[in-house]
């Protein structure tokens, strides 16, 4: 554990809590892609199956359980409790275009051809692209509420901090997880355009982010 990894995990947690609280307090999930949230729940579900097979640390177990619980709670709020506010007409990203290549790649490129390893690899690749339905939705509607952009900012920050964590671990421990690093870098690149808009429009304009 190093400071970048810890800060990354905290950013990830903050992002998820921001989204959950936003939906809970406003009793609305308008502008939120339910598809992205289902994909994230799938990411956690397939990655954390090792909760049943290996013990890493108390921190590891607690965080995994929290991420799983919060992601399912978010999906529940969107599709059950506040489904009347769900903007399904603008949440039209074709998820199968992500799932098919990701499933294919996870069978081709993995550390071991075992069910758990393939599912772990699947979760890593899927996480890299799971935000695309949300970004697609923002592009389609041309705007995002500021709280939604704060959520995306912390999610992107988490990815950037994980890269710093990998640089640190490579130098300090000789640790290098090629699958995680490559897809983590790809994932972070998706946020760069958003980061630019966030700084130039949301922070300076202090309001909704609208696209030109």
């Amino acid at each position: 554990m190093n400071i970048f990894r810890l800060a990354g995990d905290v950013s990830h947690l903050v992002a998820i809590i921001i989204l959950l609280l936003k939906i809970w307090r406003s009793k609305s999930c308008a502008g939120i892609s339910g598809k992205s949230q289902v994909l994230f729940a799938l990411v956690f579900s397939t990655r954390y199956l090792d909760l049943f097979t290996v013990f890493v640390s108390v921190y590891n177990v607690v965080m995994k359980v929290v991420f799983l619980a919060l992601s399912y709670a978010t999906v529940y709020l969107i599709y059950m409790r506040f489904r009347n506010s769900y903007d399904s007409e603008n949440d039209t990203f074709r998820v199968e275009f992500l799932l098919v290549p990701v499933i294919g790649l996870s069978f081709l490129e993995n550390y071991a051809f075992t069910p758990l390893e393939i599912l772990w690899t699947f979760s890593i690749f899927l996480e890299a692209v799971a935000i695309m339905p949300q970004l697609f939705m923002i592009t389609k509607t041309g705007e995002a509420e500021s709280i939604t952009t704060h959520y995306l900012f912390f999610l992107g920050l988490y990815r950037a901090l994980y890269i710093a964590n990998w640089v640190w671990r490579y130098h300090m421990e000789g640790f290098f997880d090629q699958i995680a690093v490559v897809s983590g870098v790809v994932q972070t690149i998706f946020y760069c355009d958003f980061f630019y808009l966030y700084v130039t429009r949301v922070l300076r304009g202090k309001g909704k982010m609208s696209l030109p």
Partner: peptide, 10 residues
């Protein structure tokens, strides 16, 4: 498990 990597990150 044998043949599987230990994934200690979240």
């Amino acid at each position: 498990a044998e043949g599987e990597a230990l994934h200690d990150e979240l």
